[in-house]
Nucleic acid binder design. Structure first.
Lengths: 176, 176
DNA sequence: CGCATACTGTATCGAGCGATCCAGAAAGAG
DNA sequence: CTCTTTCTGGATCGCTCGATACAGTATGCG
C-alpha cells in the first residue's frame, strides 16, 4: 500500500513490491493473482483502515462543526507526510480513471459512504440548530467530500498543513 | 496532450504517441529530447490553452460571483468529457508527485496564477460590496482553487456535470 | 541541374517489465 | 522418523519499454 501510495500503480514494479514485502514473486502471484489484484487489495486495505478511521472520528466531536473540522484536518495531516503523498484513493482515481472500472467502483463506494455519514451528521446538527440549514444536507455533504478531494490534491502540490487548515475554515463557513 | 490526459504518463508509450502524432520515433526524440520532455511540453501546452482560457473568462462576467461560477462550470464541462478525463494538471500531480519536481513547479505556478487572478477579482468585488468580506481575498481565492481541484477529481469519479454544478453553488455561498 | 545539408521514420538495442516454472524447504500426518 | 503435501522464492520466459543508429528522402542553394 505504501509503495503504491507514494509512486502510483504503473511506476511501482512487481520487484519493488516483493522486495518491500520480503517475499518471492511466486508467493505474491499465488496470493494476489497479479499486480492489479495486489493493487486492488491495497486500495481495499486503505479503505478499511485510513478512510474508515476518518469516518469514525466524525462521531466523536462535541459539535458537528468541530467533528468535521477534525476529520478534514486529520486527513490533511496524513496527506502532507513524506513530501506530499496525498491520498491513495485520489491518486488512484487520477492515474487509473476513466479506464479502470474497479477503481472507480471502489472509490465511489468509499466517497458515497463518507458523503452519507456527513449528511447524517449535518442533518442532526441542522435539527439541533447548531448549523444553518442553507443547503440540503446531502448536497452540503457532497460539497465537503469534493472539497476534501481538493485538499488532498493541494496537499501534494504544497504540503503545508497550516495553510491548508485555513482553507478548511473557509469551507466550514458554508455551514453558517 | 490528449493521450497523456486520458491515460497518464506511465501508461502512455512512446509508440502510442508517435502513432497518434503520425511521426517516427526519431522525429519525436529530435524534437522533445525524451518522453519526459514531451510530457512537459504537453503540460505547458495545457497551461497556455485550457488553463489560460479559464483565467481569461474571469474578466468577462457581469459580476464576480457569476464570473467565478462560469469559470468553474466551464472547467467541469471539459473535465467530464470522455467518461471523466479530469484535468491534465491534477492528473499529473496525483501520478507524478512527490517525485517529479518539474511537474510540481509547473502546476504550482499555474495554480498560483489562478489564485492571484481570483484574489484580485474578489478584492474588487468586496470593495464594490458585491460580496461579503468574510474572508481574506487571498485565502478565499486559495479555497476556490482547492475546491476546483476537488471538482476535477470528482469529475472523474462521477462525470455528471449537473450534480457538480450544485456543489459549485455551495462553494459560492462562502461569498455571502 | 548537382551537390551539400537537414530531416524523417524504420530497424534495432539493451533493459526492465509482468508473469510463470519448478527445485527445494517447510509443515503436517501416520 | 518417514512420507506426502503445501508452499516459497530465485531463475527464467517472452514481451514491450524508452532510446538510438542509420539508410533513405526531402530541401535549399549556387
Amino acid at each position: 500500500m505504501d509503495l503504491f501510495w507514494m509512486r502510483g500503480y504503473e511506476a511501482t514494479s512487481v520487484r519493488d513490491l516483493t522486495q518491500r514485502l520480503g517475499i518471492g514473486q511466486g508467493s505474491l502471484y499465488a496470493a494476489f493473482g497479479d499486480k492489479e489484484g495486489l493493487y486492488r487489495a491495497a486500495l481495499e486495505h486503505y479503505r478499511t483502515t485510513l478512510a474508515a478511521d476518518a469516518l469514525r472520528s466524525l462521531d466523536e466531536g462535541a459539535d458537528a462543526r468541530s467533528a468535521i473540522r477534525t476529520m478534514l484536518v486529520g486527513r490533511v495531516r496524513i496527506a502532507v507526510e513524506d513530501g506530499g503523498r496525498g491520498c491513495l484513493a485520489v491518486n488512484a482515481v487520477c492515474e487509473r480513471l476513466p479506464q479502470d472500472a474497479s477503481v472507480r467502483r471502489t472509490v465511489r463506494d468509499m466517497q458515497d459512504a463518507s458523503r452519507d455519514a456527513l449528511a447524517e451528521v449535518l442533518r442532526v446538527a441542522a435539527e439541533r440548530g447548531e448549523i444553518a440549514a442553507r443547503h440540503d444536507p446531502h448536497t452540503q455533504a457532497a460539497f465537503l467530500v469534493t472539497f476534501l478531494n481538493g485538499l488532498l490534491v493541494t496537499s501534494k502540490i504544497t504540503p503545508d498543513a497550516h495553510a491548508l487548515e485555513s482553507l478548511v475554515e473557509v469551507a466550514l463557513s458554508t455551514l453558517d
